[in-house]
Design a binder for these strands. Sequence first.
DNA 1: ACGACACGTATGTCATGTCATCTGTTGGTC
DNA 2: GACCAACAGATGACATGACATACGTGTCGT
Lengths: 168, 168
Amino acid sequence: MTYVSCNMSVMKVVEELRYLVLAIQREGNRLLAAELRPLGITPSQAEVLRVLRDHGPLTLNALGGLLVCETGNSPSRLVDRLVAQGLVKRGIDTIDRRYLALSLTPQGRALHRRIITAENRLHRTMDDRLAGQALDETISTLRSLADAFPTGAALARRRGPALAHQEN
Amino acid sequence: MTYVSCNMSVMKVVEELRYLVLAIQREGNRLLAAELRPLGITPSQAEVLRVLRDHGPLTLNALGGLLVCETGNSPSRLVDRLVAQGLVKRGIDTIDRRYLALSLTPQGRALHRRIITAENRLHRTMDDRLAGQALDETISTLRSLADAFPTGAALARRRGPALAHQEN
DNA sequence: ACGACACGTATGTCATGTCATCTGTTGGTC
DNA sequence: GACCAACAGATGACATGACATACGTGTCGT
């Protein structure tokens, strides 16, 4: 079968991994969107609320650096809609007026609690599909793929708040 | 840690899986988009060309059923741009004029060969990141997640009927 | 003080994705 | 043959994502 190149089969495996990741991401996002629709927000918006809740007030850049759903360019418009819905407060740093100080409003905090419930429903669904398979090896494999990338690094930052950016 | 519910840690693991999948999909897509940009097409368009090449002429619905990048609703606009670029021929079934008969043009076939080269560059990059880790368990875990979903079924269909698409 | 530069944020543009709805075509029923 | 439900595809609307660029603000060198 592998008469073209000796590592052809490895390529095929990596390609299947790529398509599996694509399929799971799509479907997971669709399911989560359905869970969140009654709350009036999208999965990306939910991630912003979560990051803002877990990591104090943030500038727009710092927020982008902790988001997986956006490559840090600048989630201006993503934040815009949350501000318009009264879920996020957009403050301006009085010392350096270039910086924003983004934080949750009380409504944002309240909504985040309902978001967690919705996400847990998705996670239970996923857990059922996984039928108790051990995920350790899968997680560690995917981590080694993700960690090399900017958004993977974002995840690592969110995991290990003790590593660096405590002051945000 | 798990003072709220006994399977709280399982939830956390599933959640990390979800974010890892999101991160890898995003970054993989970004890298692939960069590889494909010189060819003038996007990752989604490349998937259409690939499916049309592997599975003869297709109707729009059948194409949607084999795509991972779109949930089968109807990739009309995705196909539109490929037709506009002369890569896909949009034929109309003469017997039942509701059906399309989508197939690659010679240019589409030629471009697909260059797409494979670009994709292989990405796969090599991913393979490097994986540093020779065995993927068997990861693949099978992800398959059990994906197979329950429509687009996972699409992947299975692509694997199944055309077990013999070795000629690439 | 002034001007070039760096930096954070905002905006324009394009291609997805997703859902809802519309249009055209066919087949079945009367 | 006329009506109508079912189906394939097209389109409108909205929110992302990604890239490039424009704008406002602070910093630094002179």
